[in-house]
Design a protein around this nucleic acid. Structure first.
Lengths: 232, 232
DNA sequence: CGGCTCCTTGAGGTTAATCAATCCTGGTGG
DNA sequence: CCACCAGGATTGATTAACCTCAAGGAGCCG
C-alpha cells in the first residue's frame, strides 16, 4: 500500500460514499452493491501521489471528500496542472480505455477516494446502461471544462485570474468575493503562470480598485470591471 | 435548410456512412437500422457554418468525409480554434447533455456529415449499451486530446509547431516530412498564435537546418532536433 | 495590367518569464 | 518573551517571447 494510504472500511463506508455521489444517486440497491464490490475506499493524507503518469492503469477513482490535482509532467519544464477533482468527481477514467495513466494525480488535502476496478466497471457498463450513462455525462462535463481551459489559456493572465476569481465566488456562493483555497504557488500553476506574475497581477487589480486583497481573502470592488477583464 | 447544405440520400447512404465509422462497426444490423432512423446525411460545401455557439442543440454530428473546425468565440478577441473533427469523429456531443451548443463549428472542405438526433440517441443509450460504450470511448479520446492541447499551450510556439509537424507526419504516414493541409492562417490559429509568428518560426527552423520548407511542403532535416524542440 | 488575397518581413511595443533580493510569517529554541 | 530561522510571497530589474502595426512581395483571377 502506498505511503500515507489507509484502508478505511468495507462495504458500509464504500456504499455510503458511492450513494453520496450525484452521478450514482439513481442506482438501485442491487446496482449499488455490484458497484461497491468493485470499490475500495481509501484515505490519504495531503500531498500524496495517487498515481503517476504512465503507471499501469487498472482502476479509476472517485473523490468522496477532499481535493486532488491532476497534472502532466514534461521534460525540461515544470509540471503543468491540468485540472482538479473535487467531491463527486472522478479522475483516471482513462483506465477504462487504456492500460496506462495519462497524467499524474496527487492529493492537495486529506482526501477520501473510492478506487473502482476498471475491468469490472467495463463489464458493468456492457450489461447495464445505468453505469455507462453517468460516466458519459461526467466525461462530457470534463470535456467541457477542458475546452474552457484551452480557451482560457489563449487569454492574457489578468483575464485568466479574473475568470478564476469569478468562478471561485460562484462556487463558494459568495456574491462579492472569494477565498483562495489553494496556495498562491498552486494557483499560479493552475493559471499557467508563475507566482511572481500572479502577485503583480493581484496587485494591479488592487491598485485599480477592482478587488481588494487581504491574505487569502479577495473582495470584489468592481464586479463589472472584473467581468470585462474576463472577456465573458 | 442552411445555405450550402443539401440532403443526400435516405437510408442507403446513411447506413453505409454509419457502418463505415469505426465506432459503429460492431453494431448489429438491427442496431444500425435503429441508429439510421435517427440520422440524416448532409453534404456541405467548404466554409459553411454547421452550427454556432449557443444555438439550440438537438443533434450531434459524425463526420463521414471531409473536415470541420471547432472554435469558440470570445468578445474582443479572434475566435479560438479548439480542435478539428475528421472522418469517423464526432462533434457537438454536448447536445446529448445540454440544450445549447458550446462551440461553433464550420467546414474546412466539402464535407459529408451524419446528423444524429440527440433525444433519440439518448433513448438508444438507455436501452442498449452498444450505443453508449463507443460514445464513451470517443469522448475519452477527445478528452485526452484536449488535455494534450492544454499541455501544449503551456509550451513556447516553436515547441507547439514542432509537435504539430511531428503529428502531421505520423498522420500522413510519412517518415521525414509532412504537408500543411490547412492555410497558414488556419494553422496559426490552431497553434494559438498569429500568422506572422508562424512565418518567422518556420523561417527560424529552416535557418537552423531542422526543416526545409517549400510552400506547403515541409521536410524534416533533423528529426531528433525537432523532437527535442517538441519536448516529447 | 490592376485588384485581390494570402503570406512574409521589418520595426516597435507589450506582456510575462527569469533572476535576485527582500520581506513577511509562523514555528523553534534559547 | 524574544531572537532566529525557513518557507513562501513579494518586489525590482532585466531579458526574452510574442503581438501589433505597417509595408512590401507573390500568386491568381478578372
Amino acid at each position: 500500500m502506498a505511503p500515507g494510504e489507509r484502508l478505511v472500511g468495507l462495504q458500509p463506508q464504500v456504499v455510503a460514499d458511492l450513494a453520496a455521489c450525484p452521478i450514482y444517486s439513481k442506482l438501485t440497491v442491487g446496482q449499488l452493491e455490484r458497484l461497491a464490490s468493485l470499490t475500495r475506499s481509501i484515505d490519504m493524507g495531503p500531498e500524496v501521489v495517487v498515481f503517476r503518469q504512465a503507471d499501469p492503469a487498472d482502476a479509476f477513482y472517485l473523490v468522496s471528500d477532499g481535493k486532488v490535482k491532476v497534472c502532466k509532467v514534461l521534460q525540461g519544464a515544470p509540471p503543468a496542472t491540468i485540472g482538479y477533482a473535487r467531491p463527486g468527481e472522478t479522475f483516471g477514467e482513462s483506465a477504462l480505455f487504456t492500460d496506462e495513466h495519462l497524467a499524474s494525480v496527487e492529493t492537495l488535502q486529506r482526501t477520501r477516494l473510492c478506487r473502482i476496478d476498471a475491468a469490472g466497471y467495463r463489464q458493468l457498463m456492457l450489461n447495464e446502461p445505468a453505469f455507462a450513462i453517468p460516466m458519459l455525462a461526467l466525461m462530457a462535463r470534463q470535456l467541457w471544462m477542458m475546452t474552457a481551459r484551452v480557451e482560457e489559456l489563449l487569454l492574457p493572465v489578468p483575464a485568466r485570474l479574473a475568470r478564476f476569481l469569478l468562478d471561485a465566488s460562484t462556487e463558494q456562493e459568495s456574491a462579492d468575493g472569494c477565498r483562495l483555497t489553494v496556495a498562491k504557488r498552486e494557483l499560479a500553476a493552475r493559471l499557467g503562470t508563475v507566482p511572481e506574475t500572479l502577485s503583480r497581477t493581484l496587485r494591479r487589480l488592487t491598485a485599480a480598485r477592482v478587488i481588494s486583497n487581504d491574505y487569502d481573502e479577495v473582495t470584489f470592488l468592481d464586479r463589472p470591471a472584473l467581468q470585462r477583464l474576463a472577456q465573458l
